[in-house]
Design a protein around this nucleic acid. Structure first.
Length: 225
DNA sequence: CACCAGGCAAGTA
DNA sequence: TACTTGCATGGT
């Protein structure tokens, strides 16, 4: 027996309401410009945000946080500046790859790249070596402002720990649960994902603190549709 | 000290 | 197709 769609909607909204009441608004994404969001999306891959901030500060302090500057910067120097974010050699190449797309497909202007239709934009982003589903969707939502739900390791962990989905549920299925059952409200998608990450960081870690979890006691029935 | 963080791609069988 | 492995700093 699968739950009715409206039942899924109300359960998803209850989760959201609980998280918002408990934590308050998260005001994501932390970044001043669309390009900064894009850079942060690469740097935060499997990395604590605090370390990403240090890397971004290094770039800002040298006025290098724009496509033209990063394009002109030797990849070894870029790697040196983003060291605190970890995987610095890998991420330096990934940033270069992303900048190449901004130049090729946006004429070097991030907003021009980001105003393309979401399906086309996602396809282009995914074609960049170093940008996968989550990074692409983060850019679609938090840099371009499109109504896309971002799935990350915390989201998957929170949902599976609560019995809502299987632990190995594919990315696209998880994404569709939210996108097919929530109101068409970009601000909601923005805040919802941020709240799930906040919950994950604080309570749903590998060693969880379930006693204090704001989602404690929810019905564990599947929400797969 | 060990553990882990807002993933992704390449390699192996 | 389905696993496994490399990538790396810094906070808790």
């Amino acid at each position: 027996m699968e739950p009715r769609p409206d039942a899924i909607t109300s359960r998803l909204m209850e989760i959201f309401t609980r998280l918002l009441d408990f934590f308050g608004p998260q005001r994501w994404w932390p970044g001043d410009t669309p390009f900064e969001v894009m850079v942060g999306a690469i740097l935060t891959q499997n990395t604590a945000w605090l370390n990403v901030e240090k890397a971004i500060s290094n770039l800002k302090a040298r006025h290098l946080l724009d496509p033209a500057s990063l394009n002109a910067l030797p990849v070894e120097e870029l790697a040196g500046l983003i060291k605190p974010a970890g995987y610095f050699n890998l991420k330096a190449r990934r940033l270069k790859n992303m900048v190449a797309l901004v130049i090729k497909s946006g004429g070097g202007d991030p907003p021009l790249l980001l105003t393309q239709a979401p399906s086309l934009l996602k396809e282009e982003l995914l074609s960049v070596n170093g940008i996968g589903q989550e990074t692409a969707d983060s850019i679609l939502l938090y840099a371009a402002g499109y109504r896309v739900f971002v799935i990350d390791a915390y989201t998957r962990r929170v949902l599976s720990r609560h019995g809502f989905v299987e632990a190995d549920e594919p990315y696209e299925n998880l994404q569709n649960i939210f996108m097919n059952n929530l109101p068409a409200d970009t601000a909601l998608f923005n805040e919802y994902h941020a709240l799930l990450v906040r919950l994950g960081k604080q309570y749903c870690r590998p060693r969880p603190d379930c006693a204090a979890c704001p989602l404690k006691g929810l019905n564990r029935q599947s929400i797969k549709s």
